[in-house]
């Protein structure tokens, strides 16, 4: 979550924007990220002025697999990773993503810009150090 917010803020800085209004991510069932918990963590942690009030949009990615032997693609149900035709193992082709898709930024008017706390708005120390 902190990694995501650091990346978002570093994008805001690259584009010299004042505020983040929307963050769009995609999350798969095998990502280890639970959408509901991600939303509540975002609401709690995104309290800095430049991200405060931003909307988090979560696109859910289906769990898809491909069977090489049968050259067939199918949706994995109940986490059964066997080809429905030959019963062999399959390759996951989508469903383990935790991707940042887009960030919406706003250029505020001068009045809002003046109201920002300079320390939270400062971009000099927000270079991405995600781990």
């Amino acid at each position: 979550m902190k990694t995501l917010l650091r990346q978002v803020d570093s994008i805001r800085c690259e584009h010299n924007a004042d505020r983040v209004t929307e963050v769009r991510v995609e999350v798969g069932p095998l990502s280890g990220v639970e959408p509901m918990l991600l939303s509540s963590a975002f609401a709690l942690l995104a309290s800095e002025q430049t991200v405060a009030g931003a909307r988090l949009v979560i696109d859910k990615v289906p769990l898809l697999a491909h069977c090489e032997a049968c050259d067939k693609e199918f949706e994995v149900n109940g986490f059964v990773f066997r080809c429905p035709t030959c019963r062999g193992n399959v390759k996951t082709i989508s469903g383990d993503e935790f991707h940042l898709l887009s960030v919406s930024l706003s250029e505020a008017n001068a009045e809002f810009r003046d109201s920002l706390d300079p320390s939270s708005h400062n971009c000099s120390d927000t270079h991405e150090t995600a781990s």
Binding site: T3, L4, Q7, I11, H15, A17, D18, T21, E22, V25, E97, F98, H99, L100, L101, S102, V103, S104, L105, S106, E107, A108, N109, F112, A130, S131
Partner: peptide
């Protein structure tokens, strides 16, 4: 607050750095 909004497309794996490390 009034102002202009722009959307930047990123398409990046959030965990890319830890995977690469």
């Amino acid at each position: 607050m009034t102002g202009t909004t722009k959307t930047i497309t990123i398409r990046r794996d959030v965990t890319a750095k830890s995977k690469a490390d």
